[in-house]
Nucleic acid binder design. Structure first.
Length: 593
RNA sequence: GCGUUCGUAGCUCAGCUGGAUAGAGCGACGGACUUCGAAUCCGUAGGUCGCAGGUUCGAUUCCUGUCGGACGCACCA
């Protein structure tokens, strides 16, 4: 469909050029990119629409007249174009009615092979995506879940669009916050293990981070002692390092369990403890080249006021590096490790300023790839009760949340009496929970703050992940029944594709086919704008379209056996597309639910 | 104070590079299970797209201003 659309766009533009030269015009119609190709709001208007408003002034004619002349010009073209469709002027629009059989054939291919997506606009692009980046002093919370699913989903979308994607994580495993949980453990831990307290290991570590607040009340010198622990860590004190390693292992193992549960993963892990000194030399080089300057007290600065930012410290007066210095080093290291065409940072929008500064600094250091850095900023996840705050204990823990959702889903399965049909109700419930959560988090544009309403997310009706899963399961159900019905009903792999497609060339089946065909357009748009929400919207549209279609159009119970067989192939293609889309959105696909 | 960002139906959100009657879901009201699984479907009600200007043949979309919210402007990360 995407190829056919481009073919028509080229043809329409060529016709515009002809019209221009016939009118003695040499300029004014712009380039092909400025020619708008869209989808008419109603199928009876056509399949592709080209508005002619923009050319009225150039030609000094009304858009409707231009559209009519365009129709005539295009209709005079040979079969090599007209076999793909028929142009028609509809008011001020030049619309195209596609030769549907070729579209249908393309769509039905999806039921025949797994790897059917051949449209790869990002082929040859190397894209690195950094996301999650947890601290090792506490378990993941709801905000991380949004980050994780955004990063994972975007990576899958880019990959589906043909890009070579590398997912990376940077573990924040050093610093004062880590030392606080270590100190609290020294005081209260009594040498116990997570198993001793029956806690998931990252929750165990998090418990001691929280206990640090108690320690502060009991010991006024707690903050000082934590600082001392940081100094010991930096000087390589054996005992401190031993504790640090143990607690970090607990934290990281626990966090990785949550990743596995959520279905996210990484190609490479970076650890801040190994990279945090890396930017220092870069800054000193920049200093010697006059990109930065040294203050009287010895600290190193960069002045970004001319681009609307401030003066930023890059090295402390004692020569140690700070946050942004580390990111400078890490970015440069990555560009050497794996020369990317693009590097995407999935980080909360609170850090927008930080990334503007970082990208500008890298530009000034002379790295041309600095313009290929992208901060995918996402908004906070708020609760109906207000913002999540660690100190007020209003943080929603990631594992607890998934547990809650899964328990609720299981109750729902039992309430509907489907527990015997789904096999393992607990396993299905877990998948429904993840589908609900991930879809909920992805449906909103990343830039916006969003409201996480447990009530609404837990209700499995409407514009939700489970709805999409349900339509997938229904498609599977029809296919199962079709297989049972015997050879007459089963789709004939050997049937000529064109003959099957011809059967489906009718008004009843077209809306679903058109929706299926627009998959690649949605994918490209989502990849280009880096917005999984576009894919989420497509997923819901497709599910709803499928729902409406199978309600009105009998598949198995159809009196016409050839139509029945053809529609069975269409169900297969729809199921395959739904499955693909669910994969892109980290929504587990379910054969039954 | 400066900067970034958001402001669309009672609520939560879509609306692709400006374009053909602004769309979903929830909630409300009314319907549909002897019919390929009702976690579904259909119908009704509900919007001066924060406000005011500007650009344009045309603005929810772009520009300016303004009001309101969020976030940021550390030798924290």
């Amino acid at each position: 469909m995407t190829d056919i659309k481009r073919l028509w766009k080229e043809a329409v533009f060529a016709a515009l050029e002809n019209l221009a030269s016939a009118s003695g015009l040499t300029t004014g119609i712009g380039d092909m990119e400025s020619l708008v190709a869209e989808y008419p709001p109603k199928p009876e208007l056509g399949d592709i629409g080209f508005p002619m408003f923009g050319y009225a002034k150039v030609f000094k004619k009304s858009p409707a007249v231009i559209a009519t002349e365009m129709e005539r010009l295009l209709a005079a073209r040979g079969e090599e174009l007209l076999c793909h469709g028929r142009p028609k002027a509809v008011g001020p629009y030049l619309n195209v009615f596609l030769h549907r059989v070729s579209v249908i054939e393309e769509v039905l291919e999806r039921g025949r092979k797994d790897d059917w997506n051949s449209y790869l606009p990002f082929a040859g692009r190397k894209v690195m995506v950094e996301f999650s980046c947890p601290n090792t002093n506490k378990p993941l919370h709801l905000g991380h879940l949004r980050n994780n699913v955004l990063g994972e989903s975007l990576s899958r979308i880019l990959k589906a669009a043909g890009a070579d994607v590398k997912k990376v994580n940077l573990i924040n495993d050093r610093g004062i916050h880590i030392c606080k949980s270590m100190l609290a453990y020294q005081v209260y831990g009594g040498g116990r293990n997570p198993e001793d307290e029956g806690l998931k290991s990252d929750h165990f570590v998090g418990k001691y981070y929280v206990l640090f607040n108690q320690l502060k009340k009991e010991d006024p010198k707690a903050e000082e002692k934590a600082q001392e622990l940081l100094r010991l860590w930096e000087s390589g004190d054996a005992e401190t390092l031993k504790l640090w390693k143990t607690m970090n292992r607990w934290a990281v193992e626990g966090i990785k369990t949550t990743y596995a549960r959520q279905g996210v993963g990484f190609d490479d892990y970076y650890f801040e403890s190994l990279t945090y000194t890396r930017g220092k030399q870069e800054v000193l080089d920049g200093l010697s080249r006059g990109v930065f300057y040294r203050d009287d007290d010895g600290s190193v600065w960069v002045d970004l006021e001319d681009v609307g930012l401030d003066k930023k410290v890059l090295l402390r007066k004692d020569g140690t590096s700070i946050y942004i210095t580390q990111d400078i080093g890490t970015a440069i290291q990555r560009s050497k490790d794996w020369p990317f065409d693009e590097l995407v940072y999935v980080v909360a929008s609170e850090q927008h300023y930080h990334f503007r500064a970082l990208f500008e600094i890298l530009r000034r250091l002379g790295y041309s790839w600095s313009e290929n850095l992208f901060h995918l900023a996402y908004g906070l996840v708020n609760l109906p009760s207000g913002r999540m705050k660690t100190r007020e204990g209003t943080v929603v823990d990631a594992d607890d949340l998934i547990d809650e959702l899964a328990a609720l889903a299981q109750k729902e399965i039992e309430a509907k009496g489907r527990d015997s049909m789904v096999g393992d109700p607990a396993a299905v419930a877990e998948k429904v929970a993840l589908g609900a959560l991930h879809y909920y988090l992805l449906q909103t544009s990343p830039t916006k703050d969003m409201l996480y309403d447990p009530e609404q997310s837990l209700s499995f009706t409407g514009n939700t992940g489970p709805y999409i899963q349900y339509m997938g399961a229904r498609a599977c159900s029809i296919l199962r029944k079709g297989a049972e019905a015997g050879p007459a009903q089963v789709l004939q792999e050997g049937d000529a594709a064109e003959a099957v497609a011809a059967v489906l060339d009718n008004e009843a089946d077209w809306p679903l086919i058109r929706c299926l065909a627009s998959y690649s357009g949605a994918l490209e748009s989502a990849a280009r704008t880096k917005e999984p929400s576009i894919m989420a919207a497509y997923a819901h549209e497709l599910a709803a379209e499928f729902s409406a279609w199978y309600r009105d159009n009998p598949v198995l119970s159809n009196p016409d056996p050839s139509l029945s067989a053809g529609r069975l192939q269409l169900v297969k293609a729809a199921k395959s597309t739904l499955q693909q889309v669910c994969g892109l959105l980290c929504i587990p696909f379910l054969e039954v639910m």
